[in-house]
Amino acid sequence: MTKPIVDARAIHKHFGALHVLKGVDLRVAERELVFVIGPSGSGKSTLLRCLNRLEEPSSGSIVVDGIDMLDPRTDINHARQRIGMVFQSFNLYPHMTALGNVTLALRKVAGKSRAEADRLGHAALERVGLADRAEHTPGQLSGGQQQRVAIARSIALEPRVMLFDEPTSALDPELVGSVLEVMRSLRESGMTMIVVSHEMGFARNAADRVVFMDDGLIVEQGPPAAIFETPTHERTRAFIGQIQRH
């Protein structure tokens, strides 16, 4: 692998007595789409949240786009602009319009003027197919539309990496497609993406690499075909088998 854009090494995370991450290494190349799967409680969401330091790792090192995320001298707010994050529950700001959600960080962190931020915000909403919903508040949007606004909120900041934390788990089945569509187009534009999700179909035809986690460790990783068709570890096989039966 050439110089990775995300380089996490020996990540440990304790929640009190609970040892959630037990020394995880994850390197992601530029323009790569890495899919993280695993049973619930395996630590995949925690790993994701450590990468932009929403959770503080107990030990280890994380470098994203050349920035040492765990160095106390790092301006974490500036660093986070380069790492977009999309949440399972959207977390849109209910008191702002879609455009307001997208432009807040542009104005307050990136220091853009209101006019400039509005222009970038409209462009981002356009990219997720919601140009005509700019003035709607989250309450007036469907779940799928809300999640696309949340994606627009991240990509408006032109991040180098995007983290997706179960982006479609809270959606009704008929709304999942529109969100995956947006993620696919992001991928085609060359965005580096780390996705925690159960959408195996999407993983199969969009991911470069699938990482299987269990019990706080990466058990096995490789191209989707290899992981899904010929997993080498028993635990991976069991998990894949369970998922495919559904």
Binding site: N52, L54, N77, H78, A79, R80, Q81, I83, G84, M85, F87, S89, N91, L92, Y93, L104, A105, K108, V109, A110, A150, R153, S154, L157
Partner: peptide
Amino acid sequence: HKGQWEASRSTGLS
């Protein structure tokens, strides 16, 4: 909700 804090902090707001 805690998610409001997280979403905002993840976009770089202090």
